[in-house]
C-alpha cells in the first residue's frame, strides 16, 4: 500500500540497530567462517583447517559437507571413517537447527548474491524471466547422476560455493570469474537467480532442514500493514505468504526459508520473530480471525 521507500517504516519505528540486526549478525557469522579458515594460513592460528568440503575444527573435530560427501558416494567411493563422521556431524547439526541456515549464515556466495539483489533493487532492474524454483530440486539428482556416470565429484568441478571458499583460502584462479558471472546473472537475468533457482547445494540443505527446529514465525501478523517490505527483502518470498496471510500456523515451515531473519529486521510492525517450530503462538493485535490451535 505504502509508497514509502523500503525499510522506512522499520527505521522510523525501531531504529537503526533493530532494522539491521540479523543482517549484521549474519555478515559477522559469514566473516567468522571465512576468518576461521584464513586465520591458520595467514596468522598461524589454526581454528578451521581445510575448507567447506572437509575440515578439522581446532585440529580435533572433523567436519565435512554432506553434499560433497554424497556426491563422493554417488561417484562410487566407499566412505572413510573421518569423512563419514564429519558429514554426519554437519548434517546432524543442520538437520536439527535449520537446513538452509547454511545458505544464509555460512555460504560465501550469499554476500555476492545479496549484493546483486540489493543493487538490482536500487537500480530498479526488472526482468521478466522467472524460471521455476523447482529447477534446483531437479538439478540436485542430475548432479548425483552425473557423479555416478562420470565416477567423479562432477558438481565440485563447477560448484561456486565450495569453490569460492576454497579459492579464498587456497588460491582463487578463475573461480573469481565464475562468481562474477553469478553476480551478473542475479543482477540482470533472474532475480535471486542463483540461490533461489539454481544452486543444488541449497536445495540439498533445504531438504535436510525439512524438520529443523529454528523457524521464523509471524505471530503479530494481524498488525501487518501490507507494506511489502518483507517480500522485498526475502530471498525466497514465496515462503512468507502462507504464514503471514494464511489462517493456519504463523510459522514459516517452508524448508526454502533460509532463516536469514531479514523479514524480522525490515518489518516496522514487529510482525516476525525468530523462534522454534513448536512456538505456534499468535500475539493479539486485534480479534483473532482464527484462534491459534
Amino acid at each position: 500500500m505504502s509508497a514509502r521507500p523500503f525499510l522506512a517504516d522499520a527505521l522510523e519505528r525501531k531504529g537503526r540497530w533493530l532494522s539491521y540486526r540479523w543482517l549484521i549478525l549474519r555478515r559477522l557469522s559469514q566473516l567468522l567462517v571465512l576468518a576461521g579458515f584464513l586465520a591458520g594460513p595467514c596468522c598461524g592460528v589454526w581454528i578451521l583447517e581445510g575448507n567447506l568440503a572437509s575440515s578439522l575444527l581446532l585440529g580435533q573435530v572433523p567436519l565435512a559437507d554432506p553434499f560433497t560427501f554424497i556426491q563422493s558416494l554417488a561417484a562410487g567411493h566407499s566412505p572413510a571413517p573421518q569423512a563419514m563422521l564429519g558429514a554426519a556431524l554437519v548434517a546432524g547439526g543442520y538437520l536439527l537447527v535449520g537446513g538452509r541456515l547454511f545458505c544464509a549464515w555460512a555460504c560465501p556466495i550469499n554476500p555476492v548474491t545479496d549484493l546483486a539483489g540489493w543493487l538490482r533493487r536500487r537500480l530498479g532492474i526488472k526482468s521478466g524471466f522467472m524460471p521455476s524454483r523447482h529447477f534446483r530440486l531437479a538439478l540436485l539428482p542430475a548432479c548425483l547422476l552425473a557423479a555416478w556416470l562420470t565416477g567423479s565429484l562432477a558438481w565440485e568441478y563447477v560448484n561456486p560455493v565450495t569453490g569460492l571458499m576454497r579459492g579464498l583460502v587456497f588460491g582463487l584462479g578463475w573461480t573469481g570469474g565464475l562468481v562474477g558471472a553469478i553476480f551478473l546473472f542475479d543482477l540482470f537475468v533472474v532475480q535471486r537467480g542463483w540461490c533461489g533457482h539454481v544452486c543444488p547445494m541449497g536445495a540439498f540443505y533445504g531438504l535436510l532442514g525439512k524438520t529443523a527446529l529454528l523457524r521464523v514465525s509471524a505471530p503479530r501478523r494481524r498488525a501487518c500493514t501490507d507494506c511489502m517490505d518483507c517480500f522485498t527483502a526475502c530471498p525466497e518470498p514465496q515462503v512468507i505468504r502462507p504464514a503471514l496471510k494464511g489462517k493456519g500456523t504463523p510459522l514459516i515451515l517452508d524448508s526454502n526459508c533460509t532463516t536469514c531473519g531479514r523479514c524480522v529486521d525490515v518489518c516496522g510492525e514487529k510482525v516476525f520473530r525468530l523462534t522454534h517450530r513448536f512456538d505456534r503462538k499468535l500475539d493479539e493485535a486485534g480479534p483473532p480471525a482464527h484462534p491459534p490451535s
Binding site: 575448507n51 572437509s54 560433497t68 563422493s72 565440485e156 576454497r166 587456497f170 588460491g171 578463475w174
Partner: peptide, 22 residues
C-alpha cells in the same frame, strides 16, 4: 571420486610441496 578437494593434505605438508589446483 574420492577426493573432496578439502586441502587437508596441503595443510599437513610441512613443506610448500602440495597445492590445491586453482
Amino acid at each position: 571420486a574420492a577426493c573432496v578437494r578439502c586441502g587437508l593434505c596441503v595443510r599437513a605438508c610441512p613443506f610448500t610441496t602440495l597445492n590445491l589446483a586453482p
